[in-house]
Write a protein that binds this DNA or RNA. Structure first.
Lengths: 343, 343
DNA sequence: TTTCTTTACTAAATCGGTTTAGTTATTGAT
DNA sequence: ATCAATAACTAAACCGATTTAGTAAAGAAA
């Protein structure tokens, strides 16, 4: 009653000479339906409040078999795209009474695998994952166990799972067409080494846009760089494209960080954008409208991605859906700014 | 053995005709010190692996009295500053075997209070909080309960708690002095309405820099705007400062979002930076070096903030420190770019 | 042969809740 | 006066681990 110890249900029950059952019922607001007298209810609630009673969710979770927690595994919480989505996920989850555990995989498949298991240990009720796409085994495991999970941003195209992604193909197709419509003809692409589905689709969108305009896609115009060292590699890539004998007149960057670093380097090389080259980006940074020149980009609906992911996951968890798997492909939006010179 | 059910310690024990105790000991690698035969150990481990045994951390946590989880409560995970710090916190925590639960308070004290309690329910072993500074009661509660927590970014100056912050005062003092050294004399400040310690200190740093240069700080040059509506209010603020009869020749923005929105509006108003006004920012966005003009800012050591917070918290949790409270004040770094016109 | 060690385990309590299946005392109907 | 209903609780099992305090059997020492 006086010490600094935590109060438990049992303590309250003992102090009040009432059974644990009654206390539990009352504190879970099931007092009325269980005919606990108003007086007793008040005594219990008052006493609990007075002593700062804090229920132990571990015990509760253990008992009811769910933790009311969802796990979020993403490549990197510091990346603006993921942090935006994470914000929405947390907000929506919160509204439904769920808390979220998060972890960054830093694009390491091993780590991602460990994280998945760690999250399972912690009895999360479901998982939202933007995968490295190198964890077939774990994904199969989750499926086998019928564990609720939804993928976003990255998914396993040949596995039948719930996911919410953006139309990556159409995204780059749109920005590439935009360049073509403005009369640019020698369009380069700076993207990442293959391995990720979105990246593959972005590449295809770029190619198809060219094809549609009857332009054959030059192999030398496509440069794929290693993500870990993009900061350094991008300079060579740009030099190769822009200062070549047959230089490109436009560049599509397949991610926001490639684009911003690209612009940084172009400035350093004193190459004028958009006069010398026009540039466009898939995805953006919040400052893309005030950089010089403002970068035309195709933007991802982060809010919709986050809320769709949570909605699908909670459907799975609560079994409120009949569908076996639920998928969503959201549209990107072309945001025209000054980096293509038409303005 | 065949169904899709989860395997528990007990299941393994039953199937193998071995006691739960033995299984638990072995799976926690305490087999040797408890003289469990090598053969038995192998049988148990193999069987556990074969059946994808996943220990239940809720049960474990309940039993050992700790969840090996830390809670992170911040204003907004989507904000680049917080997402960077969160990334570090998670990474460091991970290394020490902790998982992190996060929630955004969206600057709502009520919500923050609820989050704190929700985290306590979930038996986090400690909390890292960037507080709204309107929750004296909860902070006192945590202190009273001797619950391990550390504040960062925002703290309660008159409470004796662990915290890690940045030298906000010196930060604005440095950037203001930078402007003064470049000959700017009529320096405005666009900041937030009072309420947050960092904001108060940034204001003071600005004022003291002026005083030091024998310039009296004009009340009308200081405009404090409401955070919720900064996007709109900032235009009036700028018009008032820059298009006044006695216009400022420089503006200090006390946060990165005020600065970026400020620049956006200045561009819209066709005011030349730095010719008409120089601008500087406390804290930055990753694109501040490629916006036009690149914004001089004083940057916060997000890595150090995050790792110091985790270190201090874990010291508290593990009782590995003698000190009653541990605080750290980190230095900001002045990053000179083109927005002040000296380049 | 008896006793002491050591080896290789195990029974049962515990953590803090939830929940099922009762129990007892009182009221109302007949 | 008797019996069924209802009100107001409660005992005990359970969730899945950890951990303390043993125990039985085998080997070593006396």
């Amino acid at each position: 009653m006086k010490s600094g110890k935590k109060y438990s249900l049992k303590d309250i029950a003992n102090d009040l000479n009432i059974s644990k059952t009654t206390v539990s019922l009352v504190l879970n607001n099931k007092g009325n339906e269980n005919k606990i007298s108003a007086d007793t209810q008040k005594r219990i609630k008052d006493y609990a409040k007075k002593n700062d009673y804090v229920p132990n969710q571990l015990a509760r979770g253990l008992s009811i078999g769910k933790s009311e927690t969802i796990g979020l595994i993403i490549p990197n919480i510091s990346d603006t795209f993921y942090s935006k989505v994470a914000g929405i996920i947390e907000r929506e989850a919160q509204e439904q009474g769920y808390t979220v555990l998060f972890s960054s995989s830093y694009e390491d498949p091993k780590k991602e695998g460990k994280l998945i298991h760690s999250m399972l240990n912690r009895q999360v009720d479901g998982l939202i994952i933007a995968s490295t796409q190198q964890n077939q085994k774990e994904i199969d495991f989750l499926k086998k166990e019928k564990f609720p999970f939804v993928l976003f941003d990255r998914y396993y195209p040949d596995k039948d799972t719930d996911y919410v992604v953006v139309d990556n193909y159409l995204g780059t197709k749109k920005i590439t067409e935009h360049l073509l419509n403005l009369g640019r003809k020698r369009i380069g692409l700076i993207t990442l080494k293959p391995g990720l589905e979105p990246i593959a689709q972005r590449l295809q969108g770029y190619k198809d846009a060219l094809t549609q305009f009857n332009i054959k896609s030059e192999e030398s115009y496509i440069v794929e760089i290693e993500r870990e060292s993009y900061f350094k590699e991008i300079e060579n890539a740009l030099v190769g494209l822009v200062l070549a004998k047959d230089p490109v007149d436009a560049i599509v960057f397949s991610t926001h960080y490639l684009a911003s670093q690209g612009l940084r380097v172009l400035k350093k090389l004193a190459i004028n954008v958009p006069k010398d080259v026009a540039i466009v980006s898939f995805d953006e940074l919040s400052a893309f409208d005030i950089v010089e020149p403002p970068i035309t980009s195709v933007i991802q609906p982060t809010n919709e991605i986050g809320s769709a992911a949570v909605k699908i996951l909670l459907n799975k968890i609560n079994g409120t859906t009949l569908k076996k798997t639920e998928t969503r492909v959201l549209e990107t939006k072309l945001e025209i700014r000054g980096s293509c010179g038409q303005l």
